[in-house]
Simulated scan of single mutants.
Amino acid sequence: REWLEWEDRRRAAAQQCQSQRCPPSSRAQLTRPRRSCRDPAVHSALFSGDLQQIQALFQDEDTANMIVETHTAPLTIAAARGYTDCARYLIQQGAELDARVGGRAALHEACARAQSDCVRLLLTFGAKRHTPLHNACANGCGGLAELLLHHGACAAVPNGAGHTPMDCALQAVQDAPNWEPEILFAALLDYGAQPVRPEMLRHCANFPRALEVLLNAYPCVPSCDTWVETVLPELWQEHEAFYSSALSMVNQPRRLQHLARLAIRAQLGSRCRQAAARLPLPPLLRDYLLLRVEGCIQ
């Protein structure tokens, strides 16, 4: 696997160098008509991930970019189903990374279906990253979101509906059980997301660790009126220390240590996570800078 990832990076770099040396002419940049194919054998090979059949059927750039029976691009099908070897072959044959045949590009589909290996492959070859981040957040895929952020996705850009990745993550908290939303929230904040609007805190009121991360992004704890009534009684009893500390700190001055943390984070901006790793700090202090969960608001 390490060799394959190295080879993918080498090929991606070679393609980039080639495109810089020989930029396409204005004529070549025009959108060419795509071939359509309704052959069931093509459809079957793509949906089953039959690499040998795909190698036999897609042997040049035209075939790699044709529209298949489901009105979708071959690369989008392979990426959505997690067929990494098939996706790699199609890319090497010239499949367009960001083609939106049928609605969404290959990276969007791979993120929506949590196909992390295909996401990594597409990112290596330079697929565009912004809207896929919204998909990853909306599906509660923290690992994919961090991968996209690490490759340059913007944590603050809104999608077509005006929602930021943080908005999508907040709305996914209730819909994606058995995950750790605090990890995704911290990553988004580390990569430049703004603190959430106080009225949005109700979405994670029953996730105390996630709520703590979001409250620590403010210089002062905002009013709890929007979320306190939604906390389940049994959860309040289990995490009473945290919830009581949050209530007691509403509109109260925070510690100088916390304000210093926010000042440093503001200075680092969207580079906070990478910069923190390079700062000569003890591990505990570095974790504190990156909004480590402590179990109470101080």
Rank of each mutant, 00 (worst) to 15 (best):
N159C: 13
Y218C: 06
I54H: 05
Q171I: 02
R271W: 09
G162F: 08
G160K: 08
E240A: 15
D175S: 09
Q93T: 06
L51H: 07
P222H: 06
E5N: 09
A205I: 00
Q115F: 05
P283Q: 11
A153P: 11
P222R: 02
P24M: 06
R104E: 03
C111A: 11
D39H: 02
L284K: 11
S19F: 03
G192I: 01
T84Q: 01
Q257Y: 04
G160C: 12
P283V: 08
H239Q: 12
V293C: 14
L46H: 03
E61S: 15
H71F: 09
E96L: 12
H163T: 11
L57W: 00
Q93M: 15
I297H: 05
L188Y: 01
L51P: 07
C118R: 08
E69P: 00
L259E: 14
A145T: 06
A155R: 04
A56K: 01
A169H: 08
L133C: 02
I264T: 12
R197K: 11
A169V: 08
I183D: 07
R202M: 09
P74F: 10
F207I: 01
T131V: 13
V42K: 00
F242I: 13
F125L: 08
T70Y: 03
A276Y: 05
L147Q: 15
T131L: 15
C154V: 09
W227C: 10
N135A: 08
A172H: 04
Q174T: 12
C154M: 02
L170N: 03
L46T: 01
P177H: 02
Q59K: 13
G152N: 05
A114F: 14
P40L: 03
Q59T: 15
H134R: 02
E69N: 05
A276Q: 09
A87P: 13
P33M: 01
L57A: 02
V173I: 10
T76G: 14
L51F: 07
F242N: 08
R129C: 10
L30R: 12
V231T: 02
D62T: 15
C272G: 07
D190L: 05
K128H: 10
